[in-house]
Simulated scan of single mutants.
Amino acid sequence: MRFAVIVFPGSNCDIDMFHAIKDELGEEVEYVWHDQDSLEGFDAILLPGGFSYGDYLRCGAIARFSNVMKEIIKAAEAGKPVLGVCNGFQILLEAGLLPGAMRRNESLKFICKPVELKIENNETMFSGSYRQDEVITVPIAHGEGNYYCDEETLARLEENNQIVFTYNGENPNGSISNIAGITNEKGNVLGMMPHPERAVDSLLGGADGLKLFQSIVRSWRESNVVKA
């Protein structure tokens, strides 16, 4: 399986994402600069965290117009897995690939610490290696991670089982319904604020995030198996 890690000006978690895929997952991965006009040959697209374009205007608002976003939208429409973490999640929201918006943390402070997440839906291509209702520990690092949507959108997310991760116990940023990660209706685009790529080895404090990437590979292999 071949992964693309999209690099925007200001990305700072791209190396972490690359390491998670190459060294921990053992799959092919390449950096793709934001001005590229093709993602042909890639099976999954990863948008890492950071401060794309300095977070000017709004987080992700300028990156949404990067040349490569047209190809990311095409990949999403084709059913390929697209994962946006932290700033990547914010970009997916700005691009309209996921519903809702991101606001400042309720505390108005940047928060960087491990948090507990609950698996709300383990039947997605991103969560299939977890148990339903499993509680995992993954770090966060953001100042604008307070996910918000209107009541109608929230009802739709709940009805379609698009809420994949919620904060377990403490809600660190004030996100509505404790939401930490959601998918699109098709289930192939996931946005989440916590950083699974920073939880892929016990040396980093835990490996609970590795199962997310293993889930992607397993789902891809199951859907691309060649029958004799």
Rank of each mutant, 00 (worst) to 15 (best):
N171W: 13
N87D: 13
R104P: 11
L83S: 08
G128S: 14
I176A: 10
T124W: 04
L108W: 02
N168V: 06
V115A: 05
A141Y: 03
S129C: 15
M102Q: 03
D150Y: 11
L157N: 01
L157C: 06
F165T: 01
G145P: 12
E159P: 09
I136C: 12
V138S: 03
I176H: 08
V135C: 00
A101S: 11
R131C: 12
G169K: 05
T137S: 14
L117H: 10
C112E: 11
A141E: 01
G84T: 05
A101N: 11
H142R: 00
G145Q: 03
G169L: 07
N105A: 06
H142V: 07
T137D: 06
K118Q: 13
L92K: 09
V164I: 13
E120H: 11
N87M: 12
T153F: 12
E159Y: 04
N161V: 00
E158H: 05
E152M: 03
K113T: 13
F165C: 02
E170W: 08
C86M: 08
I140V: 13
E152P: 02
N173M: 08
G100I: 14
A141I: 05
E116F: 05
D133W: 12
V115Y: 09
I176E: 07
N160L: 07
E152H: 05
N171F: 06
K109L: 12
L154R: 08
M125S: 09
T166E: 06
P139V: 02
N161E: 15
A101Q: 10
E106N: 14
L108H: 13
N146D: 12
D133L: 11
L157Q: 11
D150Q: 10
S107W: 09
A101M: 15
A141G: 09
N122H: 11
F89R: 12
D133V: 05
V164Q: 03
S129I: 03
N146V: 06
T137C: 15
M125I: 15
I111F: 05
L83T: 10
M102Y: 06
E158R: 14
G143Y: 02
I91R: 08
P172T: 02
P172H: 09
L117W: 10
I140D: 03
T166Q: 07
V138I: 14
T124L: 04
I136R: 05
D150R: 14
E120I: 09
P139W: 00
N121S: 14
E170A: 00
A155F: 04
G96I: 06
T166R: 14
E158Q: 15
L108A: 07
G145K: 10
F110I: 01
G169Y: 08
N161F: 12
F165A: 10
T124M: 04
L98R: 07
L92V: 04
L157F: 08
R131M: 14
K113E: 15
E134L: 00
R103V: 00
P114A: 00
N87R: 09
G174T: 00
Y130C: 07
N171D: 12
V85D: 10
